[in-house]
Amino acid sequence: MFRPLRLAALAVFVLVVFLAVPLAIKAAGRTDFYYTLSSVALLAIASSGVWLMFHIGRINIGQGAFALMGGYVSAILVTSAGFSFWLSLPLAGLFCAAVSILIGLPILRLRGVYFAMVTLVLTEVARLLALALPITNGAKGITSIPAPGAIGAFGVTLVPAFDTFAERNLAFYYLSTIMMTLCFAALYRLVHSRIGKLFVAMQQNEELASSMGINVPAMRILAYAISSFLGGLAGAIFIAIAQSIYPSSFTVNDSVNFMLNCFVGGLGHVFGPMLGTLVLYFGWDLLFAIGQYQLLIYSGVMVLLMLVLPNGLLSIRLPSRRGARK
């Protein structure tokens, strides 16, 4: 019975993101917002991975590692191996997913703060690896990565090369937002599927879930792989926009921010990370005008937000429903 409402919400979202925002930006002449909003979309994708880990009851502060890894995989494939960007994109995601399965086998046995701390360390490992490995070119990083080329099938150009766009960032804006929409749609579907129910069961009590016959180790590997896939995907597109990657492209701070995006948006809702990213990223950008007090006010507001709305922004309209559930 909520179906029409949901469809309407989806239609409004699509119209706003793909029509109203580009038109408004064009009218206002603030083309720099294309870059800002692309960043928001990509960071929201990475944060959604973190959110999925929250959904199974794990605090993942290691998403920066996979964003960095995805970025490097894509960059190396494009510059050294001559792959097309479009092919490197899924490969970057799959590579991250594969690595996360390998790492996940031991570390997913950890819980609570142990898992949080290990994943935090992972981000640092990724940075040090990028510095030490020969293929990543150390601290100098990989620069002048070519922009995504054209996609064609049977002689028809489906997506023109990004260099042919008059406003290259507009192309990236569409790429990022389309990816974000797809990722969140997939995530929404996942969370509301049977697997999503299993995830909630694991969040509440892993032993109990296990005793019900849920294959808990396999499920949490699955969640971690999806989470890392999203991180790698976001990282790869980010690198394509920046056209360069360094070991410091994604750091511990980014990993913590991905987690904060989820908290601010609210852990109880799939779209929490999207809203959280938008609020935090724009908040940070707007406060830039204040200069040296930027970090002070930003963090002060964050602490206040936590005091007033400890369950995230999306919890504002939830009280009545939550009351009903309890």
């Binding site: 904060l260 908290f263 002070l296 963090s299 602490v303 369950n311």
Partner: peptide, 21 residues
Amino acid sequence: RSVREESTMLLAAGIAYFLDA
């Protein structure tokens, strides 16, 4: 006030940023 106890991590991270500033 919070439903999930992980919320304290956001608070702690916020305080870390605040003290940094």
